[in-house]
Design a protein around this nucleic acid. Sequence first.
DNA 1: AGCCATTTTAAACATGCGTTTCAATTTAAT
DNA 2: ATTAAATTGAAACGCATGTTTAAAATGGCT
Lengths: 210, 210
Amino acid sequence: MAKRVTTKEKILNAAEALFAEHGFEQTSLRQITADADVNLASVNYHFGSKKALIQAVMARYLEVLMPALEQELVALQARNKISTRDVFDCFRKPLAQLREVRKHGPTLFLSLLGFAYAEIQGHLRRYTMDHFGHVIEHLLAALHQANPQLSPVDMFWRLHFVLGATVFAQVSGPALREIAAADFGETIAADQMIDRLIPFLAGGVDASAA
Amino acid sequence: MAKRVTTKEKILNAAEALFAEHGFEQTSLRQITADADVNLASVNYHFGSKKALIQAVMARYLEVLMPALEQELVALQARNKISTRDVFDCFRKPLAQLREVRKHGPTLFLSLLGFAYAEIQGHLRRYTMDHFGHVIEHLLAALHQANPQLSPVDMFWRLHFVLGATVFAQVSGPALREIAAADFGETIAADQMIDRLIPFLAGGVDASAA
DNA sequence: AGCCATTTTAAACATGCGTTTCAATTTAAT
DNA sequence: ATTAAATTGAAACGCATGTTTAAAATGGCT
């Protein structure tokens, strides 16, 4: 017997797909409820507001990703010698694990993350920092361990450059893959992009300071 | 005698400041015309539509930047041996030159570029490619010259990672500088960020492929 | 000065948005 | 079966948006 899909779940699923494709602000509750085949008012009934819905969509992924990432980072930091590449490789398994919460979880989540940052929505940043700030601490510590020659402020900036390249690549991913396919005849799956990305990021972080 | 500032210029100036701070979609014509101290309808009178205004704002910078960048790249390509760092350094002078069109031109332009990409607006991408596509060709050629070991498709992706890190860093620049100042007590001017960025980008592009 | 094209103004228009309301319906417990 | 609570439904509210309209004002030219 198939488990009945609740209205709340139908809303979350439709919302995340639309958010990942068009961004948060540019997706209306009417689009979401039409796709989910539920009543418009049910969003406010079940979530209270659009802002709360956005948070709920993100939370579904963050609550899976962050503990897994923390575990990887703690294990890595126990080792003696670690490289930048090691640190970024810590993201692979937790990201892949998002496939369990949703079929295209990794891709969806990174797109959502991209839009969350592009539209600077304070409530999302605050939510992330309040709930998972300690994971970011671990990440910074691991990166410092891998690159003790870099000052904390240097590392701070490079980490955000990393984030920028990642989320941007993800958000414009569909368009870019289309162009790449047209220009190079090479079709690149969304999952393969991270294989191209990680060497780039590690090379950037490892570069000697100016 | 001071030259009179036309309505058209007042609109462009107010629009670019608001666009650079809040993005295109999130800036209303009413905000723009209020800041510019002109009538609401004058935007549609002088530019025809909001889309056309956005293009006009970007064009003011692109028409200065692109020819200068092309010149730098052509000069660089004439040399025998060039590095990735050389290629990115080609952006320094043309970007700095934007200070002549407007006081904080370089910062403003990069913010605008960031929002233009974040909000995937086809009409801007098409405009850029139609008018300045040959400059992009030069950039790709110079990067290939500096990194002949990288395949074209590898270079394609890395160049977009570069773009992603740049525009993202610029868009979230104000917020990030604020955090950096609070956490490290170090105030970083917008212009200094590019000095932190370029080594990162060159390191990423130069990294050996996976 | 008088005229005509250009520009500015105030108001309204049409549309889409998030949210709220309240009655109808379904669900679950007694 | 009855009752109370939870959920769904259709409609409206209030507001903000880009755009259009048509009258008023302005500026240059003969």
